[in-house]
Design a protein around this nucleic acid. Structure first.
Lengths: 273, 273
DNA sequence: CGACCTTTTGATAGTAGTCAAATGAAGTGG
DNA sequence: CCACTTCATTTGACTACTATCAAAAGGTCG
């Protein structure tokens, strides 16, 4: 429903480049690349994200689109044309196998990109579904490429985002493969807290916008197991439920979660039994 | 041991670009991008890979490096400077968590790239370890960026490779999260067979160069479970062991494996009991 | 308030992990 | 060439973790 407007209205990027500028760009690109990367490393996570968003906004005038929980940002099978940059809100990435298995394969926050999976085959391979109201910026891939030739920082941004996604996916796989259920849920909460912290948000209270079933799907376990794991973590004092509802989770110390994930339960052993 | 020579000797790329050429490149990049992508889609998998290797070879004169089983191509924590393109052989990607968990997070074949995970933080986050004799091409990332400004096809190649890796990692996660042990092992064999087929190689016999323990680690199960799963698949007639050793596996019909993965065991139900 | 969805918790079953032993394969040195 | 060591693999017995089934409680929205 919202796809059509969102996909096709991206404004063309002005390509007024004189020859001198173009030549300079080519020559400077390599050195600039490293300098840019090192500059970025000095910024905090939220500063990096804000800067990245600003750069994209200035260079590309992306098509902004409000989304509400449940909206489909891009759909598996749909022809690839745009990448999406999440300015606010929260998105889940869902993969559907040929035989009908459905799997949440990723979660995206402010500053994350969506749609990289579409580049290879010119079709998206996953659905991206908003879990909350927010704003996504649609960026025509070809416009992005063109702009990135004039702005080394833009190409860097793109590659860093893709690289981060690859590293992130591997972490997910590691978590699913090596951790027992309770630790996997703890690691999920830690991941979420880190994502918030990295964006300059409070990390002690998490408002989960996913059902137990969605969390379980993402972590490769059933919703009952998620529920039991959360109960056990709460009993161990590693988390607390907010009075309002059980969707909101308080994390007194993220480090306590971390050590639980690592050691099984070297921390707080007395509390657990 | 081999790292020093491999990492530091990448030759600088010649950057003889006149201004006219540079300007043309910028203007043509966007259109060329789509045309190139569509041309590539018409080629077979092995042709695409051969063409990609040829393009990189011609554009970048990569540093070639022979590797033997066990050689470390790049190591987690090491400073990022090169991407690696696998020309022949077979490589596993191993991630090591801070608390010592070790996880095989990927397998690479001819035409696959290594090291994308290093772009984001300027350090590799995984080890890449050769499982077999082969040849890797080291490509300085900055040289690649410079060259890709002059050759749209090169940038496309890079992005497609990263995109494919992202899609691939998600498939792995889906497999681990949704399939029971036997189907996961079957899916692993199917994946391997597809990788071979995609490179124009015989797909009916697979020479596994991994121990049961490595396979189990990759699939998130114990080596005993892998062994039992293989025995059950063999009993069901879906695979056969070569007489030589149990490392070589014959797959009479890959499609039979596929339907086993999907349906549990709608195929060959009588055989299984 | 009632319909519906989510979550929790218990009881039970089943899958995969752990421990252990035996067999098989491969390389080393006498 | 064979004995011997070592590592990989298979298989069995048992345990444990997680899934499944079921019921009740908690929340949400018309």
């Amino acid at each position: 429903m919202m796809n059509s407007s969102l996909t096709h209205l991206c404004p063309a990027t002005p390509i007024a480049v004189n020859q001198q500028e173009a030549a300079n760009v080519v020559a400077l690109h390599g050195q600039a690349t490293r300098r840019i990367a090192e500059q970025r490393a000095q910024l905090s996570g939220s500063q990096q994200i804000a800067e990245a968003l600003a750069l994209v906004n200035d260079s590309l005038a992306p098509q902004r689109q409000m989304v509400r929980a449940g909206d489909v940002i891009c759909q598996a099978g749909e022809r690839f044309s745009c990448l999406y940059l999440l300015n606010s809100g929260f998105v889940k990435i869902v993969s559907l196998s040929s035989d009908g298995r459905e799997q949440v394969v990723g979660l995206k926050f402010r500053g994350d990109w969506l749609g990289f999976d579409g580049i290879a085959n010119q079709r998206y391979s996953c659905d991206a579904i908003a879990m909350d109201t927010g704003e996504v910026w649609a960026i025509r891939y070809e416009a992005l490429l063109e702009a990135s030739l004039r702005r080394p920082a833009l190409l860097n941004l793109l590659h860093q985002a893709m690289s981060r996604e690859i590293a992130n996916d591997r972490d997910s796989l590691m978590s699913v493969c090596t951790l027992p259920a309770d630790a996997r849920v703890a690691d999920f909460l830690r991941y979420w807290a880190d994502a918030l912290a990295n964006r300059g948000l409070r990390t002690d209270q998490i408002k989960l916008r996913m059902t137990r079933a969605e969390i379980g799907n993402y972590l490769g376990m059933t919703l009952e197991t998620v529920s039991r794991a959360l109960s056990r973590l709460a009993k161990a004092g590693l988390i607390e439920f907010a009075e309002g509802g059980r969707r909101d989770i308080l994390i007194p110390e993220v480090d306590a979660l971390r050590s639980f994930i690592q050691g099984g339960m070297t921390q707080a052993p007395a509390l657990l039994q």
